[in-house]
Write a protein that binds this DNA or RNA. Structure first.
Lengths: 129, 129
DNA sequence: CTAAAACCTCGAGCGCGGTTCAGGTCAAGC
DNA sequence: GCTTGACCTGAACCGCGCTCGAGGTTTTAG
């Protein structure tokens, strides 16, 4: 038997993911979900554990600055099933490279900022307030 | 004698910094420059070496996602001279902490993405195309 | 039964960070 | 001296990623 786990309301998912309910609805409209969110005998959304797991993962993609359009591409590929596996892998690998570059660039800039900070701290030491 | 070094035109600065001429003008209008760019016997901008050095540094601030409004704050402080040194240091240090957090969060998310990639690669290995 | 809280849709609005356009002025090469 | 390309200003416009508001329905607590 597959673990049933009672579905979550949109505000529960918001609490769990750190997104707002507005953002969750927006993401759905934007086609980022793997499947339309189930509505149980009402107009209210009921998120399954799988829905939530996907939202958590897509949030990680977003937090590494993957544009929403790319997340949608990924979701569309995923919806196409197994035949798209290679394409999905490639999308992630491409993104991995982009992120690595960003991290490196940020690290370099941070070094320059740290150097500037060290200059301030240095002259602070030499001529304290 | 202070190194005079012939001033640079806006497009030369653009080439040197990787910004566009439009962005350079936009930054100036937005109050990000330490001083208004000098105009030599014409309406054309003439960037000094100091101007360019500052633009390079502010670009590093921007590339670590410091909002333009904060860069302006920093520039305003710098214009106030020595009395603002402590405030400038604090601004940079605050930002430093923010960036460190961002880097850590990106790194964590990247790990999740790498894990996903490894899953794809793994099942690729088990059931190759 | 009722009132309040949570949910719904649709569409407009917003903040950020530039970018583009119109309509000129200026300067360097021929 | 004239053309051509770089430069100027001011203002409108854009893409992204949400966010908010209006107006209405549904669930839940008392």
């Amino acid at each position: 038997m597959p673990t049933p786990t009672t579905p979550l309301s949109i505000s529960e998912v918001a609490d769990h993911t750190g997104l707002t309910v507005a953002t969750l609805r927006y993401y759905e409209r934007a086609g980022l979900m793997l499947a339309p969110i189930h509505r149980g005998s009402s107009t209210h959304r009921e998120y399954s554990a799988e829905d939530v797991a996907w939202i958590v993962f897509l949030t990680k993609l977003r937090s590494t600055a993957l544009p929403i359009a790319r997340v949608r591409d990924y979701a569309e590929l995923a919806r196409q099933g197994d035949s798209s596996r290679a394409d999905r892998l490639e999308l992630l690998q491409r993104h991995r490279i982009t992120v690595a570059g960003q991290l490196e660039s940020m690290r370099t800039s941070l070094d320059a900022i740290d150097y500037k900070i060290s200059l301030y701290s240095e002259s602070e030491r030499l001529s304290p307030a």
